[in-house]
């Protein structure tokens, strides 16, 4: 049982981040987003509003897309977090990262890690096929530069690639 009084000792948790098991000690009021950005220097996850109103902080927690700004880090004990840094780096890009580049699905780049984490989850969830469905299920990620049509294009490209792969495997 973990317990702490205000201002008292930090609480130890075990958390897997991008495949790496970590033991961290933290105050209960630290959010997952601030843990990532401040304590672990994983600044790829962005703070756009800090209130669950923009989606820039989207990460995958046990595979599900979630706004990390509204999660207390202490409650993630035992969970596996994937951030943009764990999606693909350097020349090893995830197909959706590559599709974002090809489709010019970003401008300033600040919402982009959240868009990509969200888009990868959307593809895994399997609830979106049409453009209307992608639009609706990507609406949790605000892009002020207005790259939305290109974001939808990029996701659709990967969905098509995916369905092609699945078809080939079935044949």
């Amino acid at each position: 049982m973990s317990q702490a009084r205000p201002g008292s000792a930090e609480i130890p948790i075990q958390i897997t981040i991008n495949g790496e098991r970590r033991c961290v000690e933290l105050q209960p009021w630290t959010t997952l987003l601030d843990l990532l950005r401040h304590d672990l220097a994983l600044t790829g996850t962005k703070k756009g509003c800090d209130h669950g109103q923009c989606g820039a902080c989207t990460v995958l927690i046990d595979g599900r897309r979630i706004n990390s700004c509204l999660q207390l880090a202490v409650m993630q004990d035992g969970k596996a977090i994937t951030t943009i840094e764990g999606i693909g780096q350097g020349s090893h890009l995830h197909p959706l990262q590559q599709a974002f580049i090809e489709r010019d699905a970003f401008q300033c780049g600040y919402c982009t890690p959240g868009q990509i984490c969200s888009g990868i989850a959307l593809i895994e969830e399997g609830n979106a096929v049409t453009r209307d469905e992608i639009r609706e299920l990507m609406s949790g990620n605000i892009c002020r530069c207005g790259a939305y049509p290109n974001i939808v294009d990029a996701i659709q490209d990967v969905l098509v690639q995916r369905s092609g792969v699945i078809r080939e495997a079935a044949e």
């Binding site: 950005r37 220097a41 994983l42 600044t43 790829g44 996850t45 962005k46 703070k47 951030t83 943009i84 840094e85 999606i87 693909g88 780096q89 350097g90 890009l93 990262q97 590559q98 974002f100 580049i101 090809e102 010019d104 970003f106 780049g109 600040y110 982009t112 890690p113 990509i116």
Partner: peptide, 21 residues
């Protein structure tokens, strides 16, 4: 042409004002 800063932006490597330690 694809954006030359694209790889940095899609991997989270692009660093913004509040992200310098």
């Amino acid at each position: 042409r694809n954006r030359v800063d694209g790889p940095a932006k899609v991997t989270g490597a692009a660093t913004y004002a509040a992200e310098f330690a």
